[in-house]
């Protein structure tokens, strides 16, 4: 059994929103970037995986098991880091420790204390007095001190300073280093993923647009820039998500078609950011 997380045909309807038939799978020992704009359906997907939301249809397997087969174990195996602190504001670290100890079989107090010390978190303060960085670190301490299999991050690195962000990336790579655990990393900030993600699932308006390895994704497109007037209709038809600007245009083109680009156009390796921007532009044109 190689897949740690398998989502099949996940559908969730809200007023004015549809998460439409989402399927992807994440093998053991890898990091998946779950990418999309705000409101694309990332958090809804995660809520369904976390079993906070009821899906209208679809199945989710975590470590080979569905939630209803063993709810307790399912919840033991997920570590979740949210975009804002989900701890009750009036609690202190001692309360969090006590709750973790009460609820989780695999909670290791010594490990938790070590992380609290390593992150320099104040034992005495109320969580409402924590800075954003401290709150994120506390969520990590709580999740990493248990024997989880899947770490889910929902926009967790937003608004963190670069030093903490790089610390977080290191923690994530440590987490998967034994090859048994995986990470689902949802974000719209793509620089973080550019480095460490193995897979990219790209979701827009409730639908999956792209699902492949990051390396393949980065290699399958080329960024092309140039003068709009010099575009032939033939080349124009190959461009993806064309963006006209005052002093030239910018678009994507499939890598295997890049050889046919005549001189006079600038071609570059795109970042995941650029790929996302132009693919969204492209999907909007299609409507």
């Amino acid at each position: 059994m190689m897949e740690l997380l398998e989502v099949k045909g996940l559908t969730k309807r809200y007023k004015g929103f549809l998460l439409d038939d989402i399927s992807f799978s994440l093998p053991k020992g890898y990091i998946m970037g779950y990418v999309g704009q705000n409101g694309a359906g990332k958090t809804t997907t995660i809520n369904c995986i976390n079993q906070i939301c009821h899906a209208n249809s679809g199945t989710i397997y975590l470590n080979g098991r569905m939630y209803k087969e063993d709810p307790i174990q399912y919840k033991e195996e997920i570590g979740f880091i949210g975009d804002e602190s989900y701890f009750p504001k009036e609690m202190r670290i001692s309360d969090i420790r006590s709750i973790q100890k009460t609820f989780y079989r695999s909670f290791q107090e010594a490990e938790f204390d070590q992380l609290i010390a390593r992150f320099k978190l104040p034992e005495k303060k109320k969580i409402s007095e924590f800075s954003r960085g401290m709150k994120v670190k506390l969520m990590f301490a709580a999740a990493l001190s248990r024997d989880t299999k899947l770490l889910i991050l929902d926009e967790a690195t937003n608004g963190l300073d670069p030093v903490i962000r790089s610390e977080v990336l290191q923690i994530l790579q440590d987490y998967i280093s034994d090859g048994e655990r995986s990470i689902l990393f949802s974000t719209h900030m793509l620089e973080d993923l550019e480095q460490i993600a193995d897979y990219i699932v790209f979701i827009d308006q409730g639908k999956i647009i792209i699902s492949e390895t990051k390396d393949d994704l980065l290699e399958s497109y080329i960024l092309i820039k140039g003068d709009y007037k010099e575009l032939t209709t033939e080349l124009r038809s190959r461009l993806i998500g064309l963006e006209k600007k005052e002093f030239g245009f910018e678009a994507l083109i499939k890598s295997d078609e890049a050889r046919n680009v005549p001189k006079g156009f600038v071609i570059n390796k795109p970042s995941i950011d650029k790929i996302m921007v132009h693919l969204i532009r492209n999907s909007l044109e299609g409507v």
Partner: peptide, 12 residues
């Protein structure tokens, strides 16, 4: 996996 971790790149 160790190389990926040290370089800060993906395992793939």
């Amino acid at each position: 996996r160790k190389l990926a971790k040290e370089l800060g790149v993906s395992v793939i």
